[in-house]
């Protein structure tokens, strides 16, 4: 494992009464793909928002490149974010701008490059995701997979040190899924950055990850290289990795025995 880029210590976070993270520790290396997996609703997206400083933890620290994200002043936080790329689940493209302008947006905002330089940069980034031909389209004309690829081009527009992918494979057909898997891998290798992939698509994520964290019920259940996770003895990890319907996570929601319920009569809900 190479040098650590993101260091999470004792992270606690809750929404109302619901505890999302309870004492989570993580180390994410400076290069390579780190996968964060877990069932839906375990706060994987929340974790990315905490790392990006969009949410503040109840306790614990998150250090990115040696800086404690939640103690930074706005200006310093924005400076740090310029070095982070993030791919949202929906792509989060600006709908009133064309594909080209979307990718150009962060470049125009944060650099003083002239128009021909901006154009060259944008074309190179779009070419990297295979969508140079779509540069004049509007986001409404793109399929879900294409929108994510444009968002990827935008995320790498400023050559960040890390890229966060929020559920990149959700709701994609097999071809787009294959394209996205290949892109995440090739971008990571070409740019030599830290890629964090949050996902519950086990097979695709495991195929490209260098290191895997599995979180559930607010804690890290298991972490290690993909092979270690595959050979895990934990019943829970096995159930998750193999997608079994029943196991430590029961098929049935907590309920009294069926017979009791059937003969409870009167059709009223239980008190």
């Amino acid at each position: 494992m190479s040098e650590t880029l993101i260091k999470i210590r004792g992270l606690k976070f809750s929404r109302g009464d619901r505890v999302i993270f309870d004492n989570v520790d993580m180390d994410i290396p400076r290069t390579g793909i780190t996968a964060i997996m877990g069932p839906s609703g375990t706060g994987k997206t929340t974790l990315l928002k905490l790392i990006g400083g969009q949410l503040t933890p109840d306790a614990g620290t998150i250090e990115v490149d040696g800086q404690n994200v939640h103690q930074l002043k706005t200006r310093a936080l924005y400076a740090l974010r310029k070095r982070m790329g993030m791919l949202f689940q929906s792509g989060a493209l600006l709908t009133d701008l064309s594909v080209f302008e979307n990718v150009a947006y962060p470049i125009r905002e944060h650099t003083k490059l002239n128009e021909s330089m901006v154009r060259q940069l944008v074309l190179l980034k779009l070419n990297a995701v295979g969508l140079r031909g779509a540069m004049d389209l509007s986001p409404a004309e793109l399929s879900g997979g294409m929108a994510r690829r444009v968002a990827m081009a935008r995320a790498i527009a400023l050559d960040p040190m890390m890229i966060m992918y929020d559920e990149p494979f959700t709701g994609q057909d097999p071809i787009s899924m294959g394209v996205l898997v290949k892109l995440i891998k090739s971008l990571n290798d070409a740019l030599n950055v830290c890629s964090i992939v949050v996902s519950h698509d086990v097979y695709e994520t495991m195929s490209i990850a260098n290191y895997v964290y599995i979180i559930s019920a607010g804690t890290v259940v298991e972490h290690g290289a993909p092979d270690e996770i595959r050979n895990s003895h934990s019943e829970w990890t096995k159930q998750f990795m193999e997608g079994l319907a029943d196991g430590p996570v029961p098929f049935h929601f907590d309920a009294p025995p069926l017979l009791d319920d059937l003969f409870a009569g009167s059709g009223k809900r239980r008190a």
Partner: peptide, 17 residues
């Protein structure tokens, strides 16, 4: 709608207020 489609969050993450 910009908030619902994460465009505002996206801007924040691009260091744009």
């Amino acid at each position: 709608l910009m908030k619902a489609t994460e465009q505002l969050s996206g801007m924040e993450m691009m260091a744009v207020n």
